[in-house]
Amino acid sequence: MSIKLSVIIPVYNAEPYIKRCMESLLNQTIQDYELIFVNDGSTDNSKEIIEEYQKHNRQIILINQDNKGVSIARNEGLAAAVGEYVGFVDADDDVEPEMYQILYAAAVSGDCDVVISNYESELDGHYIITSYPFPSEVVLTEGEIQKQILPFFLKSDQLNTACNKIYRKLLIQEHEIVFPANVALGEDGMFNIFFFSHAKKLKYIDYTGYHYRETKESATRNVSKKDYFQRAIEVYKSELPLCYSNLISEVNIQQFKAIKLIHSVLAYIHIYLEPSANMPFKDKTHYVKRMILHHDVREALPIYSKEMNEELGKYQKALLYLIDQKSLLGIYLITAYSRYRNRKVRGITI
């Protein structure tokens, strides 16, 4: 039997969510697929739950390893996968029943190396769909990937996730593409940049089948354990893969990097000043102060303001002004007002 698709699911202490995830994957309408669960040293009942499902579902494969992190877990799954294409799902998320049939059909019809779709994020009962400004339902060739897709990675994190895509397994094998093992944040983006730099055909479909659920344990809420800003600085200063050297001028690269860095800083300011952030108030304000005074942020800020001025609203311009003025109190007050206003608009009681 030929396996069309391998879906790789790294699992670490996902007991509250794993059944919902597994049910959504077992209900897929695509035929001839395998589900590779990589238990990354879970200390709860995740392993036992998967084993119970495995007894009644022959497409489930379970790999157990000591706790080594999500990248190594995914790489173990890649090594075991035999599907024509591979996809990735996080154990606390779920997918629509037709998702992989739709993505696989799109890949086969265009002989594509990769297919991109939208995804839906859920946070505290609110839903946001992330889509992309790429031509939809058409095959992009290598030149178009280089002009449209690869530069997008430089100025935005929105395309980084591996979970709303399927990838041709043969291309991964030929170029030995893996998730970086020693990166605390941003491993998906690095994997994608290397894969897309070798892709010859791509299709983006304006379809939403993946549901990302942000939990208290999710990376974007784990502010006390992961230094997001330091990782953003590392990306800002990092050497790019050789594929970029002939695609984009050095000036444009710096513009894109500045846009991405300040986008990240704006997002992190809101994350760290959110009342629910699991840090003492003093530590949160110290972290924000560290960001707005950082040399690279001071360097990138005027570039961002110039390039993005026409796209910014009054609130964003005011926040940028306060960052430029190094006004920690002003930043705290304006973000607090923004949260208050948004909750009033949504009808949430404070």
Rank of each mutant, 00 (worst) to 15 (best):
M22V: 02
A232V: 02
V82R: 02
R290W: 11
S117A: 11
H286V: 13
Y212T: 03
I61N: 13
A318I: 02
I350E: 14
L261T: 04
F88P: 03
K155Q: 07
L247N: 11
Q148S: 11
V11C: 13
V86N: 07
D93H: 08
G313P: 05
I253K: 15
Y33W: 05
L329K: 11
R20H: 04
H295E: 13
P151T: 06
E122N: 09
L266Y: 00
D227A: 11
Q316F: 07
P151D: 12
I49H: 01
I3H: 06
R221Q: 05
K237C: 08
P10K: 04
G125S: 13
C21K: 03
L154K: 00
E214P: 00
I253F: 06
K237M: 10
I205D: 08
I128F: 12
G330M: 06
E34M: 01
V82D: 06
Y85H: 01
D40N: 11
V86C: 06
I18G: 00
F229K: 10
L123T: 01
C112S: 09
M279R: 08
C112A: 13
V70Y: 07
R58G: 15
T285D: 09
I271P: 02
I145R: 06
L5A: 03
R20F: 00
K216G: 07
R339W: 12
H211T: 04
T335Q: 14
G41N: 04
A267F: 10
Y337T: 13
P16L: 13
R290T: 09
V11Y: 00
N64W: 02
A232Y: 12
S24A: 08
Y17D: 03
Y287A: 14
L333D: 15
F152Q: 04
S327H: 11
M22G: 02
I116T: 05
D111T: 01
G83F: 02
I269P: 06
P275C: 09
V223T: 14
F191C: 01
L247R: 03
L170P: 00
Y33N: 09
K147D: 14
L240C: 03
Y12N: 04
L312Q: 07
M291W: 03
E122H: 02
Y132D: 05
T29A: 10
V38D: 13
G69L: 07
P302T: 08
F179P: 09
H295N: 14
S109T: 14
N278G: 01
R290N: 15
Q255M: 07
I331S: 05
R231T: 11
F88N: 05
N164Y: 04
Y321A: 13
A318S: 08
P133K: 02
Q59N: 08
C163S: 13
H56P: 03
E214T: 11
E137V: 04
D113A: 12
E176W: 01
Y287S: 14
S245T: 09
I271M: 15
E299L: 12
L159Q: 03
A162H: 02
G69D: 07
I149Y: 07
